[in-house]
Computed example of a mutant assay.
Amino acid sequence: MYINLVGSLRKYFIFLTLVAAFIYLCTHLVKNNPEIGLGLFKNESAFLINNIMDDEAKLLSSNSSQIFFLETHLEGRRNLTNARQACSVEAAAKTNPDHQIYLLLATNETQMTMERSVLYDALAAYPNINIRYVNLLEYSRGTPLEQFMIEDKLSKSKFRIEHTSDVMRILTLYKYGGLYLDLDVLSIFPVRIINKKNFVCLEGHNHFSNAIIKLDLNEGKKFSTAYVEKLRTNFNGDDWTVNGPSMISSVFRSFCNGTDLPKDKAGECEVLTAFPNQKCFVIMYKNFTKFYEPEFSSEMFERVKQVGGYFIHIWNKMLEFNNKHYKLDYDSKAAYVELAKVYCPRVMDTKVSF
């Protein structure tokens, strides 16, 4: 009887050990690979996502081969519900399989929960898409903007979401190098073929956009440092554009000793290239509705072909400003939907309205 009891206890101990090992393995896999977590726990409606700081060593050794998107609403729990934004992330991943794509979610919290959705599953199918959260104070440590974050200037801004994005994008390129894209920018041309380590995009005569910025960690450091320092000393929470397009234009003029750059011609300054607006936007905001209206589809495709652009800016913010509401479904003949079927097919297959 004693021998039987010992044998039973041994089997029970072995069983508990195996269960503990399985739980540890699953936890480790989910922590480091959220997309694997989805495969293991199909019924989970929400899960924790990783901190970008966990990827810092990889980012610093990547030779600036990463593309960043930002979402700066600052809530502690997120759900990917915007198909247009998900489309931009997928397009970057599909067009640039040799780059790591990061969707960074800003927060003041020390952890973040992501809700499952069909859009998340669509993005998780790509091995080069990474969704990470960013704690702003932790992110700024050891940079010129550390005290700026300690003073919590962003929360006092009248345009908190927009200004958080303005600050985070240049801080990210300062820290890691790479390409920053707004969430309403479609990548239609591989970055490796563009073959420029550092570039910005003209929006008007001597006026730049900060929707698309590429800076190498080393060669672009002088420009990113100048921009970060200007933010530190000249941040203005009362004006929507002053920390973004206005500031990057000012930094460029100072960096390039007042070089005159028309909006439709490329320019060079030290290691920095300024692309003309059509290479980055295809159409400007005055005509932005044409991407959403089927009757202009042929005109838009001809325009895309004619200018040979690297990106397409679909001007989501201008829709808000002009109170335009285009709800597009899979069968729409609008140019944007037709482009999305090519550049973000997995998002389109979800049939979530745009």
Rank of each mutant, 00 (worst) to 15 (best):
L38A: 09
E268K: 15
G76Q: 10
E162G: 02
A92K: 04
A335E: 01
E71T: 03
L231Q: 08
G258F: 13
I170R: 10
E35I: 02
E115S: 08
V167L: 12
Q306E: 13
D216I: 04
N32R: 14
K221V: 02
A57W: 10
V337T: 14
F13N: 09
L38F: 09
R160I: 09
N277Q: 01
L319V: 07
N51L: 03
K263E: 14
K341A: 07
F69V: 03
C344E: 05
G237R: 08
D166Q: 07
R116F: 05
H207E: 14
F281C: 01
T273N: 12
E219F: 08
F301K: 04
S64N: 05
N128E: 04
D98F: 01
M300Y: 04
F255T: 00
T17D: 10
P294W: 03
S249T: 07
I170N: 13
S209P: 00
N210L: 03
C344M: 06
A21I: 12
L183N: 11
Q85W: 00
G220S: 10
G220Y: 07
L18C: 15
N206Y: 08
M53F: 11
S298T: 10
Y174K: 01
I170L: 14
L136I: 15
T350Q: 09
M168Y: 05
C256R: 03
D238M: 11
Y180R: 03
S61Q: 15
S246Q: 08
E295H: 03
D166S: 06
T172Q: 06
A211E: 02
V304C: 01
L339S: 04
C269L: 11
L74H: 12
N316S: 11
C344W: 03
K31G: 07
L173C: 11
E109H: 12
L25P: 00
Q147K: 14
F47G: 06
K214V: 01
K327D: 12
